[in-house]
Design a protein around this nucleic acid. Structure first.
Lengths: 410, 410
DNA sequence: AGATTTAATCCGCATTGTTTATTAAACAAG
DNA sequence: CTTGTTTAATAAACAATGCGGATTAAATCT
């Protein structure tokens, strides 16, 4: 069940739709037999045979040797099918203010290599950033034992407002400029390997959907508390992208700070950046000051929170209240069964998550009191990049909706 | 371009999709010739001929006599096609706290009859409300010169949280109870005529899309300020319904009241109900008091606002600020090209709309400063009911997505 | 009256999915 | 070892669809 950007229907579209369903079943449940695909997709066995036949011809899938577990003891054994890991390779990139993460995966989204470049990108001109990203990509490809010709696509995730289809970053804390055509910038550098860009949260949202906390869930929200704040929306199994393919930026939401007057942007109340800034002020001149100068501010904060430092606890309490305010409103709007929170700041544990939960519980209307489960998910660095890879793979799988990506067949 | 709840594709679905596109083109642009349908849908002339042939057989469309305007002076004239008004009849109902509006339309959503029952529904038991609605429907059908057997469907719009697919109203100011299975309640009363329910704002949102301010716009928001507050979201040409087909209730959003501490639910800050209550308090004991007792409170308020009564202007200023806060956040999330405001309170004009615009402008992030046009639309009473009728017609047209409705064919 | 132009339809074809039969590949029983 | 049974996978026949090219229909122009 996937929403489709509607075109007029012809036999080709029909085949594309069904091929995608088969591919999706194999990705999600492989190794899987033809009969089971037939069960799951509601397609006839004949059709599944035809489609898997074509996929085998195209080397997009392979038969799994050493036959699967027999369902029944008798009868012809099922031939298990799975994605051909070598069918394609993709690279995912995650840009953050303080580092670049790059990951190369195969067609199954298995990590082949990953690397982190701890570089402060802020204020660098676009061309310099593109150069750095290019270097990282080329290095990661080499680390994976591949050449760039073998790579089918690259996807870059970055914070801010991104128009994926146009390949333009409308606004990002990373770029000084507006409307940066970063996808084109990269594609030319990479000898024509297709590069796309997307909001970083969208990537991690897809990652959660494919191989994370939300596998099999078609509706959920992801809220990332990094240096900036991000919101990813999965609705009916598809990423929700705002009206023009823009990605909503959670930091731009207005919230009411608890016990305060007026209102502020959420980014100023509860982002990692704002927490750091405020903590630095609180602890100014103290023994901890130099930790901040070394970029270890968040670690220090977590340490002090664990130690029960009251001013830090109060700070986290207020940040949590603001986040809770925003989350309560989001639940009111989307009524998602699950809300996934993540980010370095959440390592603070109950000191931050407690206030969030309490505020949400307090502000939610009674009718929505129990619809949403709020969970905290700790991501490893390369989950982001793996999500970027997944985004590219989704195109390669040939989803007939989202006219964005080229379809690989034949 | 319409999102589709994906099924596995077979020839039947293919035809259903294309038939819907043809029907949609005829509805939107009819009277329209086959060639123009072919142009607009990108379907081949042959296919259009085949589909329109079937539709003519089924009497869903008719040929428009007195040939249309010739595109070119020469050649065989085009035969214009249009919906057959008599193909089906539907009834739309709008429940508000103080009145029931009923409208009967034909297959083209032309109004055949409409009536208003000014009855306070609040606190009435469900069965009484259902009785009243039944009476209204039967009367409206009779007024239209029809019998109930000729009616293909009924749709009821009501404020609150509605689960359309289940036909259950989860919560509404109209019902004392929760989880009212109102659709079933009505269907049994109406000798089996299929009744559905939906959020009232969704209906008016569809109405705006079909024949209102947002014709041809695939992304916009509708915010209705009635006794309660409603939010309708059109995204990619489809109504957005929250995760479980629930409809978001704008009144449940939390906002910051300007110049105030803490936060409140928007319903308590800017609904017609809250405005009335506060005005009544302000004017308590004064010469205007009895107007409120007569249910003419809003008229009085508008009058005083026009006259420049400072306490009323201040009240509207604050309500507008709260609405602006919520709207700014919604624009941040959805980035819709258009936001449509409506409701009795908006008759106050600039006294309310001014603060809304100012607050939105103040709170929107710069990157989204100019994406949304905010317009005020004054609805006549039966627009709502006509929207309800349109909702039923959409099912009859046979949209292959939204498995909800039965498809009429053959 | 015949030529011209445009609309609509007819015919043949390729593609698709489905149903029904057939073959393939295993195990079980004699 | 052969034969029967069971399940998986494929093949053959069939019906529905959309499309392109040829054909017919219905008007105007010369």
């Amino acid at each position: 069940m996937v929403p489709l950007q509607m075109k007029t229907a012809d036999p080709e579209l029909m085949r594309a739709i069904n091929r995608f369903h088969v591919m999706d079943a194999i990705r999600r449940f492989g190794p899987i037999s033809r009969v089971e695909i037939s069960d799951r997709t509601q397609l006839s066995a004949t059709t599944v045979s035809a489609i898997t036949g074509a996929l085998l011809d195209d080397q997009l899938i392979i038969t799994h040797q050493l036959g699967g577990i027999r369902d029944a003891a008798r009868g012809r054994p099922r031939v298990m099918l799975e994605l051909n890991p070598a069918a394609a390779y993709v690279v995912g990139v995650k840009l953050a203010l303080d580092q670049i993460t790059v990951a190369t995966t195969n067609f199954r989204a298995d990590l082949l290599s990953s690397l982190v470049l701890p570089i402060r990108l802020q204020r660098q001109p676009v061309s310099v950033i593109a150069d750095l990203v290019e270097d990282g990509i080329r290095r990661s490809i080499a680390d994976a034992g591949l050449t760039i010709e073998q790579v089918s696509g690259v996807c870059v995730g970055l914070p801010g407002v991104v128009e994926r289809i146009a390949g333009v970053c409308r606004a990002s804390p990373i770029f000084g400029e507006r409307d940066v055509p970063f996808a084109a910038e990269l594609t030319t550098r990479l000898s024509g390997v297709a590069a796309t860009i997307d909001s970083d949260v969208n990537l991690v949202t897809l990652a959660e959907h494919w191989f994370g906390e939300a596998r099999g869930l078609d509706d959920f929200l992801v809220i990332s508390v990094e240096l900036g704040l991000g919101l990813g929306i999965m609705h009916n199994g598809e990423l929700f992208r705002g009206a023009n393919g823009l990605s909503p930026d959670l930091g731009d939401l207005m919230v009411r700070p608890p016990n305060g007057n007026g209102s502020t942007r959420l980014a100023e109340a509860a982002s990692e950046a704002s927490i750091l800034a405020e903590a630095q002020e609180i602890l100014a001149g103290g023994e901890h000051a130099h930790a901040f100068r070394l970029g270890r501010g968040m670690e220090k904060i977590l340490q002090l929170a664990a130690g029960g430092e009251p001013r830090i606890l109060d700070l986290l309490e207020r940040a949590g209240g603001s986040l809770g305010f925003a989350i309560a409103n989001l639940i009111t709007l989307f009524a998602p069964p699950k809300v996934i929170l993540a980010g370095a700041a959440l390592e603070a544990g109950e000191a931050l998550v407690g206030p969030i939960r309490r505020t949400v519980a307090e502000l939610l209307p009674p009718s929505l009191a129990d619809v949403s489960e709020i969970v905290v998910h700790h991501w490893s660095d390369d989950i982001w990049a793996r999500g970027a890879a997944a985004m590219t793979l989704r195109d390669l799988y040939g989803a007939p909706w989202n006219t964005t990506g080229p379809v690989v067949h034949r």
